[in-house]
Design a binder for these strands. Sequence first.
DNA 1: CTTGAAACTCACATGAC
DNA 2: GTCATGTGAGTTTCAAG
Lengths: 151, 151
Amino acid sequence: MDDIDRKILSILQVDSQISMAALSQRIGLSLSACHRRVKLLEADGTIRGYAAQLARKAVGLEVQVFIEVKLNSQRREDLEAFEQAIRAMPEILECHMITGEFDFLIRVCVRSPTDYEALYRERLSAIPAVSQMKTLLSLATVKEFRGYHLP
Amino acid sequence: MDDIDRKILSILQVDSQISMAALSQRIGLSLSACHRRVKLLEADGTIRGYAAQLARKAVGLEVQVFIEVKLNSQRREDLEAFEQAIRAMPEILECHMITGEFDFLIRVCVRSPTDYEALYRERLSAIPAVSQMKTLLSLATVKEFRGYHLP
DNA sequence: CTTGAAACTCACATGAC
DNA sequence: GTCATGTGAGTTTCAAG
């Protein structure tokens, strides 16, 4: 993992459809050398895959919410029950265990406030391990994720 | 935007390198019809782009942090000054304006706790519009974003 | 929407330096 | 690391049903 690799990754993070020829030119390497590096980055797991980036609202997901969750306890059973429940809900896009007053931070996207209410009341609150939740409704996206910054 | 489009998007969100032929087979459409739909989804902005997904730790970003930020006021100058400062910091990957006790939620990835301390003390705290911050250190990723759920 | 064909671009593997 | 090259695969477009 050197500066050339980081340069390759920075470009592929933004546009993975660039041709090897164009990519090699932008980083100042020959096509085959560049190609070899990309294949290595794929093989060693640095590049996990290639994905289409969708416009959230264009696919009808008007509502984005972050939820802080506190569990009844940090006992193994509660943690695992919660995590399993989370993984089973496709509307929950990500979930992080965090420090602080709450135990987890999750991100959710749904079509409407009504859908969020249903998710919140009928599915999240129904998880026995959950003791408290705090909804952080996203009003606007100031900055959207477009790849990691590789210094 | 019908069920076929959603099926296409669900697949491309996970693997954008699938060939048109394979994609068309998976959704049960002819190659040309499938191709036309994908191009339309690209043209109308539903597909914003194609990106390589990187393994965060593989690129040396061991520390992931969420930060809740409260501003001194909701006056236009403060909001704009804050948002401009946020957009100028590449380590800040995303930023959302939120409801609740705090005004913004931001996500940051850095190499080390030391790097985070520097960012927190020297760059974030230095923004005049900021009055209060709360750090939510990510201890573990329970569920990682792998595309929106399209019902 | 379908099939089928033609034209073209790239990816990929190879061999040599 | 570089360059050159040939083949196969995939993309893209078009015609016709």
